[in-house]
Each structure stands twice: as structure tokens, then as C-alpha cells.
């Protein structure tokens, strides 16, 4: 319904923007802006889904876009923001193994490497593989690897969670590019939410506090406690 070249340009713009957000996640020190970057990344994915749904006329992709917006742009960032407030950490200053600059260099190398590698893999079946699948695979896998970079090069637990979420976005991006995979992705998002909740509770409140404080915090979130009166 729209101009093909316009859609193509839009898709490319989104891909590049996603990669930029990923690079941002690697280097930003302020936690709130990290969170916002993640929100932006998720939003971009939702946009991608919308674009594809219009191109292909697939309603499922639209659903995915809505689900992504609800979960990844609204709920999860809100939840993490709440936790951030409570543990009152604002900044993530230290880096493991890689400094921001070098990690961005590494990620560029990664993108090129993945591009070449996947190009090689797909070349034999190139005629049948849709170009969008190839690009999606490259960007998706690169995004996953960059998410891993975030996980191991940032020290604060919250940042690690964001890294993981960013990896997840990579898979989502890859999934969106393969147009017929909707059902699974939907469920996957639900599971990821569960994992995420578990992760963040254990992570953020558990790791830097004593057991008593931890129990206290768990009770505060009333996550695991069923009935208080059972306690001895």
C-alpha cells in the first residue's frame, strides 16, 4: 500500500537505530538513561513489527507490536525503575574486561564477523532465502552478542538485566523478520516476563544485601510469602 522504497528505508533506519541503542547500552553510565535507551529499543522493535504487519497484512505482527509495547516499553521499564528507586543506585560506573570504547569497537567487529559468517552460511541457499531474513539474522544475532557484552562488561545487576533484555530484543527482531513465526514469539515473550521477574527479584535485592535484609525485601515485595502467620 505504501511506497516500497520508503518502507525499505524505514526498515533500514530502524535496524541502524536498534544497533545504535545497543551501543548506547554498552557505554551509558547513568541508570535512568540506560532504562530509557532500552525503552527506545523496544519501541523501535514495535515499530518494525507494525511496518511489517502493514507490508504483509499480517494481524499477528500487529499483536506482537502491541504486546511488545505493553510489556517492554511500559511494564518492565516501570518495574525496573521501581526497583532502581528502592535500591537507590543511580549510576553504573565500573566496567569489567572491556572499556566502553573498546566494547563498541568489539561490537563493530562482531557485526562484521556475523555478517560475513552468516553470508557464508546462507550463500548456498541464497536464492531461496529472503534478504530480510539474512539482515534480520545478522542484526538479531549481533544484538544478542552485544547484549552479552553488556552482561559481562557491566558490573551492576540492573545493567546486566538490561543487557539480557536487549539480547531478548535481538531474538525478537530476528523473529519478526521471519514472518510466519508468530505464535511461538508471543508465548516466548510471556515466558521472558516470568524469567525477568524472577531474575530481577533475586538479582537486585539479593546480591548486595545480607540474608536478613533480603528476606525483609522479599517480604516487602510479597513475592514468595504466602501466609505470614505460618512463620515460627
Amino acid at each position: 500500500m505504501t511506497d516500497v522504497s520508503f518502507v525499505d528505508g524505514l526498515v533500514r533506519f530502524i535496524f541502524v537505530a536498534v544497533l545504535i541503542t545497543a551501543a548506547f547500552l554498552l557505554s551509558t553510565r547513568s541508570l535512568p538513561s540506560l532504562l530509557r535507551t532500552y525503552q527506545l529499543q523496544s519501541l523501535l522493535l514495535a515499530m518494525l513489527a507494525v511496518v511489517f504487519s502493514f507490508v504483509e497484512g499480517s494481524a499477528v505482527l500487529l499483536w506482537i507490536a502491541i504486546l511488545t509495547v505493553v510489556s517492554k516499553v511500559l511494564v518492565i521499564p516501570y518495574f525496573i525503575g521501581e526497583i532502581q528507586e528502592r535500591i537507590s543506585i543511580r549510576r553504573d560506573l565500573e566496567f569489567h574486561y572491556l572499556a566502553p570504547a573498546s566494547s563498541i569497537l568489539v561490537s563493530i567487529a562482531l557485526i562484521i564477523g556475523v555478517y560475513l559468517s552468516l553470508g557464508n552460511i546462507l550463500s548456498s541457499a541464497y536464492a531461496k532465502v529472503e534478504p530480510i531474513f539474512f539482515i534480520g539474522a545478522v542484526i538479531g544475532i549481533s544484538l544478542m552478542l552485544m547484549g552479552m557484552l553488556v552482561i559481562f562488561s557491566r558490573t551492576k545487576a540492573i545493567t546486566k538485566v538490561l543487557g539480557f533484555l536487549s539480547m531478548e530484543n535481538g531474538v525478537l527482531l530476528f523473529g519478526i523478520c521471519v514472518t510466519e513465526l508468530p505464535f511461538i514469539i508471543e508465548v516466548m515473550i510471556m515466558i521472558d516476563l516470568i524469567i525477568l521477574i524472577l531474575l530481577t527479584t533475586i538479582l537486585t535485592v539479593g546480591i548486595d544485601s545480607t540474608i536478613e535484609a533480603y528476606n525483609e525485601k522479599v517480604r516487602q515485595y510479597s513475592l514468595w510469602t504466602v501466609r505470614e502467620e505460618d512463620a515460627p
Binding site: H96, Y97, L110, G113, V114, L116, S117, L118, G119, N120, I121, I141, L145, M148, L149, I151, F152, S153, T155, K160
Partner: peptide, 24 residues
């Protein structure tokens, strides 16, 4: 620590992904 372990995995995955493309 967790970071180190993820680093191992990262390196292994990179080797695998690049290696597969290289030797295929």
C-alpha cells in the same frame, strides 16, 4: 564470577558462530 562465566560463553559462541561461517 558470573561475568567471567558469561565471558567464556561469549567467547565460545563467537568462535562457534564465526567458525561455522568460516569452515562451512
Amino acid at each position: 564470577t558470573l561475568d567471567t562465566y558469561i565471558l567464556y560463553i561469549f567467547v565460545s559462541i563467537v568462535i562457534l558462530v564465526l567458525g561455522v561461517g568460516w569452515f562451512i
